[in-house]
Amino acid sequence: MSCDLTQRFVSGYLDGELDLVRTIEVEAHLKSCEFCARELENQQALREALRRSSLGYTAPASLRNRIQTSLDAATATKSPERASAWHGWQIWRLAAAFAVLVLCTVTAWQLLPGLHAPSSNQRIAAEVFASHVRSLEANHLMDVVSTDQHTVKPWFDGKLDFSPPVEDLASDGFPLIGGRLDYLEGREVAALVYQRRKHFINLFVWPDASGSSAAPVLESMQGYNLMRWSRGGFHFWAASDVSAADLAEFVRLLEARISPEAK
C-alpha cells in the first residue's frame, strides 16, 4: 500500500473500521514507513486529547422538566382529538378497514399453516440473514479485529449490557477473527466473526430471558445456512455460506466449548 492510500485509511484504521484485507495492508505499510506511523501516532494523540477533555455536555435539569411538561401537554391534548375522530363518516372507514383486516387475518390463518405459529424465529432469521449479508457488503464485518478471544471479549465490555461467551476455535479450523456490535430484535447484540477457509461465519449472541435450552435448528435462506439454538441463558444464531455440514460442525464444537456439561 502506498503512503497516499495509507494516509487516507489511517483514520479508519484507528477507529477499527477497516475490513480485514485493508487492515492487514495498512499494518504492513505502517511497519515499514516512519512517516505514516507518525501520522497514526498523531491521530491517536488527538483522540486521547479529545477523550481526556470530556467535551460532551449534560442535559440541564431545567430541560428535563420542560420536556416532561411538554410531554404532559402532548399526551393530554391527544384524547379529545381522538374522541372527535370517532364522529361522522370516519367511523365507517375505520370499521370497513377493520373488517377487511379481520377477514384477511382469518383467511391467512387458515390457508397458511406456517402462520399458526407466527414465528418470531422467521422474523429473526430474516434479520440475521440481512445482517450477515450487510456485514460482508458494507465492509463492516468487524469493529474489533483480533484472533485473540481475550481481546475480543473485553472489547464488548461497556458496549453491551451482557458479556457474551467468546471462544476461539482455531485449532478446529474455525479461527475467531473479530467481533462487532449489531442490532437484532430491537436490541444490541454481540456479533462474533469466525472464518472457515475463505468463508465467514457471523455468530450473533444475546441474552435469553427465559433461560430455556433449545437444540440447534438449521434452516437455509437464499443459499446461506442459518442455525439457531439457546443455551445457558443466551440465544445464538450463526449465519454463513459454508455448507450445512460445516456449520453444524461449527455449532457442535462451539457448544462443546461453551457448555461442556451439556454434552
Partner: peptide, 28 residues
C-alpha cells in the same frame, strides 16, 4: 439518550438556550 441529544444539539447550535429549545422540539 437525552444527554447525548442535548450534547449534539449544543455542539451544532453552539449555544445553550438554542440547544435546549432544539432538544425539546426533537423530543416532541
Amino acid at each position: 439518550h437525552l444527554d447525548a441529544a442535548y450534547s449534539l444539539a449544543r455542539w451544532l447550535t453552539r449555544n445553550d438556550q438554542d440547544a435546549q429549545d432544539v432538544t425539546q422540539e426533537a423530543c416532541l
